[in-house]
Amino acid sequence: MRRLLLIAIPYAWLVALFLVPFLIVVKISLSDVQLSIPPYTPTLEFSAGWTGIRDFFSQLDFENFVFLTEDSLYWKAYLSSLQIALVSTALTLMVGYPIALAMANAEQAWRPTLMMLVILPFWTSFLIRVYAWMGILSTEGFLNQFLLWTGVISEPLTILNTRVAVYIGIVYTYLPFMILPIYATLEKLDVSLLEAAEDLGCTRRQAFWLVTAPLSKPGVIAGCFLVFIPAIGEFVIPSLLGGSQTLMIGKVLWEEFFSNRDWPVASAVAVVLLLILVIPIILFQRNEQRQREAEQ
């Protein structure tokens, strides 16, 4: 009896507040927009019995999904989300890998402090960390002031409200997610392998590419997915740093819902976004499982 309760309480909570809401999104994505509250039909009427359920199904259609393919705004937004996520994942890897490597090479006594320094920004508000860049990247911001002062540029650069600002924002906020899994694999790396490689005549650089890099692959893959998956659906970064021209699907969904009040289309956008995410999520899970099996 107790066991049943123990399972049933969290189970029921997740069904009611995760699964059911998600099914509602799918249902509304197949409905028509209406100028009322709630602004969509059909609504499922259980009181009408079997005919109610049949009416409900006969009224479902895929026209919102067809609409998504017809209006170029949507597929452009999906494509540019994918592209932004890919580029910023690659950039995060390039910034994060050397940091993870240096942490793994640091003295044992230093490592907890370095870990702390990487994790600490993760605890501070995401919104504040994105906001911090608004003052740095603007035309009269610190970066331009600095570059003008050093004489690298003579005219201030426009960085804020461009894609570049979005890349910087994503790299900055997701950097800990990249560093930590890579560091975890590098830390476990057997140093004697590197010594063997060097004894056998490898230069340090060769030893890195032949030993360290292949062995850190699981961490790199995990880190890339941990950045890529949330970056696709990102809303805060493109809306604060990207300006009006930067299209990302999270932003489109938000505007469709709050500004246009088109719930069926917003729901259809959400369903397609999830379909896009299914593949990287499955690949990520597989990578994690393989790693777990390798450890056993």
């Binding site: 997740l14 809401p21 709630p38 659906g233 969904l253 959400a270 990520f284």
Partner: peptide
């Protein structure tokens, strides 16, 4: 059950928010 535990971790926030709002209204 385990799917429902792990799915919210990777679910984009906009979708979680939208779906819960639609539930509360329904």
């Amino acid at each position: 059950f385990s799917g429902m535990i792990y799915a919210p971790l990777v679910m984009p926030e906009v979708i979680t928010g939208l779906s819960l709002l639609l539930l509360f209204i329904a």
